[in-house]
Structure formats: structure tokens, C-alpha cells
Design a protein around this nucleic acid. Structure first.
Lengths: 203, 203
DNA sequence: GGTTATATACGTGCCCGACTGTATGTAAAC
DNA sequence: GTTTACATACAGTCGGGCACGTATATAACC
């Protein structure tokens, strides 16, 4: 029963979704291709048609849902990066919480990635994540530097310190939320904590 | 060739150490009992003598190196919890960094735990970790409340908010350090960030 | 203090299920 | 008719659990 191209694409997508679900629930190593295929409503033959191996499936899963590059110039769209840089970053940070809270797929992917041992074939993924992280902090630092130039930054802080503080605060919040069962309200409690932190940045 | 009790204890310890090392490097699921036994200089027979199963080995590993309960009253030993509560908590936090940075075993164990899927038989471990975490934040909040009573707390913050901020900040720092190859100096950079955060707590 | 009995601390080998990869079949799409 | 998109069957390996063997430590007894 050969399927049309559209149906094949559906199948491929179903396999990816099933893999994401199972990788998230049981971990990558504890999930079998049989389970994944069954969850997708196909057999292992279909999986092997679309993906070369389990590792390939993992990598395709990572590449399919590309992590957002959180372009800081988006904040320029909100129109205040030049007049109130600190608030601009704050908005981006809070928006990120909202986005993550409403995107179950991203929650699962990030959780999987956090639990991954990046050894051997998966190392490039780790490099990418590192690069992305470095880019984010660099962009943030740049905007905080603007705030400093305008005299809006508290003398207690430096742009680099602000950037690191926000970065770590958000990672702490998001990771605990993801790794330990999302037991609190990310937007409310997490947002509150971030807002309080940003308040200390302002002169 | 039966060994003495002391030798047996050594063997057991060697297996635990080898397991910790391999679980850390390759993940629990990707480490075989054969590898672990070989790394410990014994065979699987020895492993099965000391441990009922692989899961049991994991649990014994967790129980062997009990997470520190970071008794906040220890800070009373430093003598300033009552006069300068904020500094007392700050000291505990910074000490924690130093302790983690110098304890490779704890680094590995925490990394393993972070990457663990706590499903089925491992759920109680998750509960324990949660309880410990809750206890820490509660103790911190209590001390910050003392600071508030003394009028030492900035009006920007509440005891609960301080506690959460410190908690998440430290988790963000430690977890990034552990999960992504310890690429920065935990005590220097992490400590600096935490100190700056504490500075904003003070009136 | 020597002998003996028993528990101990493993090593070794086997079984069994599970999982991966591949080869082949097949029916429909093109 | 050929290629596609799977399903099915098969081979092979790997790893965990367990039974069993075995040599020695340890204790009990004489």
C-alpha cells in the first residue's frame, strides 16, 4: 500500500513526534525503534525508510525544531531598545517564558537535550547550543551597555554582570521547571523573579 | 580466592566508583555491567554479589554519597546569622560553590542525577531531591525574613523572592557548569554573580 | 593450636529476551 | 515498468540475570 508523497511526509512527521514523546518520557537510550514506530502507527520498516538509524533520528529531531535565535533586534520592533534598553531585554526575557510555557514541543525537546550525553556523534549539537548561548549573552551585554551609556544602569552592575545574571537566572528557572515536572507557574513565578532582578538593574 | 572483609569492601567501593565514572561519561543506560566490572578490575559476578541489579547499583550510588543537607544553622557557627543574616546566607552560598568545585565525586553524581529520567523505580529519588530543595529555600526564606525584621532588606525584595532568586541563580550557574563541560570558573564567575545579587538585597 | 565446617566473595558459563540492522516482499503511485 | 513507501521476516549481537563452581576467610570445636 504505497502512500502519496503527502502521506509519506505525514508518516515522517508522525515518527518524529512519537520519537520526541518517547525520548522525553523514557530517555533516548531507553526508547526502542519498535515503540516509536508503534506509537506512530507504523512499523520499524517505515522508520528505517525515513531515517538511517536511531542516532540519525535524534539528529533530525534536533534539526527539525530549530532553537529560536531570539533575534535581539526583534526588540527594536517593540520600539524601545534605544530609549529604554533594560525594559527591552526584560520584555524579551518575559516573552521567552511565555513562548516556552505555551510550546509543549519545545519543552520536550529542551528536556531531551538537557538529559543528553553529548559524546561522540552528538558533540556538534553541543557546540551549536554553546554558540547559541554565547550569542544570546553577547547580545544582551550589548544592549545593557547601551543602558550604561545612557546612565540608566545601577552602579552596582556592569553590562557583563547583568547579562550573566539574567542568563543564569533564566536557565535556573527554565531548567528546574523542565527537569522537575513543571511544578510551578513559569510565567507567574518565573516572570516575577526576573522582573525583580531587572528592577535592581535600574538606577 | 575469597577475599577478606576489608578487601570485599574495597571491591564494592571500586565498583561504585567505576559505575559513577561510567554513568557520568556515557549515561546510565549506555553503560554495561561488564564495562563497570572491568573498570573496577573484577567481573560481573562480583557486581552481582554486592548489588542486586543495575537499578540497585544506581540507587546505592545515590545513597552512598548523600547530598549535603546544608544545615543553615551551620551558618550560626560563623556567628553572624543574627546580626547580619544576609551575609550569613551569602557565605553559605559561596561556600557551596567552593565545595562543589573541589568535590569531583559530587560533580559527577549531580550530573548523573540531572540527566536521569526519574520514571518508575527512580521516582522516590526525585521526591527526595524535591524535598531537599524545598527545605533549602524554606530555610533561606526564614533567614531573609530575619533580615527584613531588622530593616536590612531592600524594599524591592521580599524574603520569598530573595530565596527564589538565589535558589534559581545558583541552580542556573551550577547546572550550566555541570551539564556543559565546566567551561568557566565556578567560584570566580559564579561567586561574582551571586555576590552582586546579594548586594541588591541589602538596603 | 590444629582441624573441620560453613559462610563468603567472587569467577565463569549459560540462557534468554530484546534490540538493531538488513534483506526481501509488495502494492500502489507515477 | 519503474520507483516509492512501506511491511515483514530474518540474522546477529548484546546485555542482564542467574546458577553453579571454587577457593579462601572465619569461626567453632576439640
Amino acid at each position: 500500500m504505497r502512500r502519496t508523497k503527502a502521506e509519506a511526509a505525514e508518516t515522517r512527521c508522525a515518527v518524529l513526534t512519537a520519537a520526541e514523546q518517547l525520548f522525553f518520557e523514557k530517555g533516548v537510550a531507553n526508547s526502542t525503534l519498535d515503540e516509536i514506530a508503534a506509537a506512530a502507527g507504523v512499523t520499524r520498516g517505515a522508520v528505517y525508510w525515513h531515517f538511517a538509524s536511531k542516532s540519525d533520528l535524534f539528529l533530525q529531531l534536533y534539526n527539525a525544531a530549530q532553537l529560536p535565535r531570539v533575534d535581539m533586534s526583534d526588540a527594536a520592533g517593540s520600539g524601545c531598545e534605544d530609549t529604554d534598553p533594560i525594559s527591552a531585554v526584560e520584555t524579551i526575557a518575559l516573552d521567552w517564558f511565555g513562548m516556552l510555557a505555551s510550546d509543549v514541543q519545545r519543552q520536550r525537546l529542551l528536556t531531551i537535550l538537557l538529559r543528553t550525553n553529548f559524546e561522540h556523534e552528538f558533540e556538534p549539537v553541543l557546540q551549536e547550543m554553546d554558540a547559541l548561548s554565547a550569542e544570546h549573552t553577547k547580545n544582551m551585554e550589548r544592549i545593557f551597555a547601551k543602558a550604561e551609556d545612557k546612565g540608566q544602569l545601577s552602579p552596582l552592575w556592569t553590562p557583563a554582570a547583568c547579562s550573566r545574571a539574567v542568563h543564569w537566572q533564566m536557565k535556573g528557572i527554565c531548567w528546574e521547571w523542565l527537569l522537575f515536572g513543571r511544578k510551578f507557574d513559569l510565567v507567574i513565578l518565573g516572570g516575577d523573579s526576573v522582573r525583580k532582578l531587572f528592577a535592581t538593574f535600574r538606577r
